[in-house]
């Protein structure tokens, strides 16, 4: 696996991946749907997969002395590594966002632990739609990316829409007030911290379990594929 990771770094990593980490800085923007920043990471991952098609990477890797399943597992783990770098970059960004936009984000979710959880769910949605489809037919990576983009934006719209609604209706609906105070804001109280940590743990669980199942499914598909 160490050698496969090295191969991913040296031969498969496109410039877009490190470059698109800069989109973490979107949390500096006072009014913006911040989850979109995570979509750009998915976009850079698509570039990596798509570039691999042109590079005949699957064939090259499958010919190396590794079992066929490791070809998929290594790529999924490398994808997770990229997403985790973005995730770790977003952690300090929520504190910066809190300082820069103390009044809250009118265009969607605020920088918070809940936002980080939503980012993990976004990555899970992307992985679940894009990765198995890629291994089913790598030549259709453009179409697969389009489908996964739609899925990701459905999640973004649902999440950001929910947060906007909560902020707008908090005066009228107690549930939305609870959401606005405890989930959609940088945690101000010990109770809010506790709730958001639970939300983050739930997001991490969804991401961990989801990506594990995605990897298993992609391996199963790739075993049947003719290179």
């Amino acid at each position: 696996m160490k050698q496969l990771f090295y191969k991913e770094l040296k031969l498969c990593l496109p410039l877009q991946v490190p470059l698109f980490f800069l989109f973490a800085a979107m949390l500096f923007i006072p009014a913006y749907p911040y989850l979109v920043a995570c979509f750009f990471t998915c976009n850079s991952i698509y570039y990596m997969f798509n570039q691999s098609v042109g590079n005949n990477d699957l064939l090259f890797t499958a010919l190396l002395p590794v079992p066929k399943e490791q070809v998929v597992k290594a790529r999924v783990r490398f994808t997770v590594a990229i997403q985790m770098v973005m995730f770790l970059l977003l952690v300090p960004m929520i504190f910066v966002n809190h300082k820069l936009v103390p009044q809250g984000n009118p265009a969607g979710t605020d920088g918070s632990l809940t936002f980080l959880a939503a980012a993990l769910v976004l990555f899970t949605v992307f992985n679940a739609v894009f990765i198995p489809a890629f291994y089913r037919d790598e030549t259709k990576s453009g179409k697969n990316f389009l489908v996964s983009t739609i899925a990701v934006f459905v999640w973004i719209i649902l999440w950001e829409g929910f947060m906007i609604t909560s902020a707008a209706a908090q005066a009228q609906v107690p549930f939305f007030r609870w959401v606005a105070e405890n989930l959609d804001a940088f945690p101000a109280t010990a109770g809010a911290w506790r709730i958001q940590l639970i939300a983050l743990a739930a997001g991490a669980l969804i991401y961990g379990l989801g990506t594990f199942l995605v990897s298993r499914k992609a391996v199963r598909i790739f075993e049947q594929v003719d290179l």
Binding site: K10, L11, N56, D57, L59, L63, L64
Partner: peptide, 24 residues
């Protein structure tokens, strides 16, 4: 194993590809 001409990683140098390959 050789399948005709080497047609992978067209923008990479032979040195880089070999550096990766030999580790396996």
């Amino acid at each position: 194993f050789v399948m005709g001409e080497f047609d992978c990683y067209r923008n990479a140098t032979l040195k880089t590809i070999t550096d990766v390959t030999r580790r396996f």
